[in-house]
């Protein structure tokens, strides 16, 4: 078990280094940061001095060594655009992104499971057909389009919800939350739906397929024979057995919800890390880009590692194969 965990952890470090190499080599094609930092009519000598002070003239290998060395200590330097430490900027923006990602996941889980169960049990109901159509839209329409359409419907035409931003936020220590104010809650609705729609579709289809599968199994038939109520059978037995894969998928998807928040945050001007990243790309703000990419890959790697370890704990069969492998 310990050996297994260790092996996985070493693999995770390997992945992180690979991401570091890829992202570092990408920066060399991102453009010249100095151009974005100064006005158009800045003299060549002045530009050269800035390049030098940023260490952009050093050999590539020296720059890479410095970059990896700092990243390992969570030192990402100072943002070229804002002249603020990147770590502070990311920490400031993190609550916005996490809140959005959690709300989107909760929305996706609740709606996805309910719709999935319903469409599995009432296969020919008209509501099921509507759910199927919605899920088709969720899977095929790009996020930004859904976001813009919602803005035009709910903000411009109906005037119910704000079109951008987080509303009023409350500070709790270093964390900021929009969950405690009315405008904050209103501002969360559309971005969460936009971000969660894809996950919702995924979960709905998964629950539906699993549910149909489970309903055909022997123990459900036995339960029926024992005379249990339909409700107990559906929710106590069938649904509970479909939830294991659903939770796994939702957990794994949480990483991509955070990563894909980039698009949703751009559409809704949501002041999170994704928006910060997009602005950084436009302005060749390498310290922010580097830190963000490393952080996202760290989230992915950690989630995968935890899931792997949890599997072996939850599922004894997996554990036995692991120990037999030794």
């Amino acid at each position: 078990m310990l050996a297994f965990t260790l092996r996985r952890a070493i693999q995770a470090i390997g992945v992180m280094i690979a991401v570091g190499i890829i992202s570092f080599s990408m920066f060399r094609f991102a453009g010249d940061p100095v151009n974005q930092m100064v006005g158009m009519d800045t003299s060549g000598a002045e530009r050269a001095a800035i390049r030098k002070s940023l260490g952009l003239d050093d050999p590539v290998i020296v720059q890479f060594g410095r970059y990896i060395g700092n990243a390992a200590q969570f030192k990402f330097g100072v943002s070229y655009q804002f002249r603020l430490p990147v770590t502070n900027l990311l920490m400031e923006r993190m609550p916005a992104t996490l809140e959005l990602a959690i709300c989107a996941t909760i929305f996706a889980m609740i709606c996805g499971i309910l719709m999935g169960v319903y469409s599995a049990l009432r296969r020919d109901s008209w509501l099921t057909h509507i759910f199927q159509a919605v899920s088709l839209i969720g899977i095929s329409l790009p996020t930004f389009l859904i976001g813009i359409l919602m803005i035009y419907l709910f903000s411009v035409t109906l005037g119910w919800l704000p079109s951008f931003g987080r509303g009023d936020v409350v500070h709790i220590g270093w964390w900021t939350t929009g969950l405690l104010t009315l405008s904050g809650l209103k501002a969360l609705i559309m971005p969460s739906i936009t971000l969660g729609l894809f996950q919702m579709t995924l979960i709905m289809r998964l629950v539906r397929a699993e549910m149909l599968e489970v309903m055909r199994t022997d123990y459900i038939r036995f339960a029926r024979a024992r005379g249990l109520t339909t409700r107990a059978i559906h929710f106590g037995h069938a649904l509970r057995n479909t939830l294991v894969p659903v939770i796994t998928v939702a957990g794994l998807q949480f990483g991509s919800v955070i990563a894909f928040a980039i698009i949703t945050e751009t559409v809704f001007q949501w002041p999170g890390m994704g928006l910060l990243f997009v602005q950084a790309v436009q302005n060749v703000d390498i310290p922010i880009m580097a830190a963000y990419l490393m952080m996202v890959s760290l989230i992915f790697v950690t989630i995968n590692l935890v899931v792997d370890i949890l599997y072996t704990i939850v599922d004894p069969r997996l554990r036995s194969t692991v120990s037999r492998a030794h």
Partner: peptide
Amino acid sequence: ANPATRVAA
């Protein structure tokens, strides 16, 4: 930054 959002706002 997003022009469509700006106009909508």
